[in-house]
């Protein structure tokens, strides 16, 4: 194969994961900061619903929504609809 590519090295994959996980944590910290600043009326916070005032509403919603999406697809939808590739052919 010759050339080594960036993600052939498992250390690079680990590095990427580390960067990603730290980003996620930074976002949560920013969220806390944002709540404080808007409570102190330093910056205006535009919200549609009271739900959004909770810490990390969007973060947890995104996480839980995607997990539910995948679990439902895998354990409910797939067993119901999966057929062999030539299902319609005969």
């Amino acid at each position: 194969m010759g050339k080594k590519h960036i993600f052939d090295d498992p250390r690079n994959v680990k590095r990427l994961l580390k960067i990603f996980f730290s980003f996620v944590i930074i976002l949560l910290i920013l969220d806390v900061l944002y709540i404080f600043l808007s409570k102190a009326h330093v910056i205006h916070r535009h919200i549609n619903y009271k739900w959004e005032e909770f810490f990390g509403f969007y973060a947890f919603f995104g996480f839980v929504a995607c997990v539910i999406l995948v679990l439902v697809s895998k354990y409910i939808l797939r067993p119901l609809v999966k057929r062999r590739e030539d299902y319609y052919d005969n």
Binding site: K50, W51, F54, F57, F60, F63, V64, V67
Partner: peptide, 19 residues
Amino acid sequence: VLFTLGFSYMAYILSQPCF
């Protein structure tokens, strides 16, 4: 662990009034 925590937290938030 994360999913259990996240799920119960979301359930709590969404059980609160939104308006």
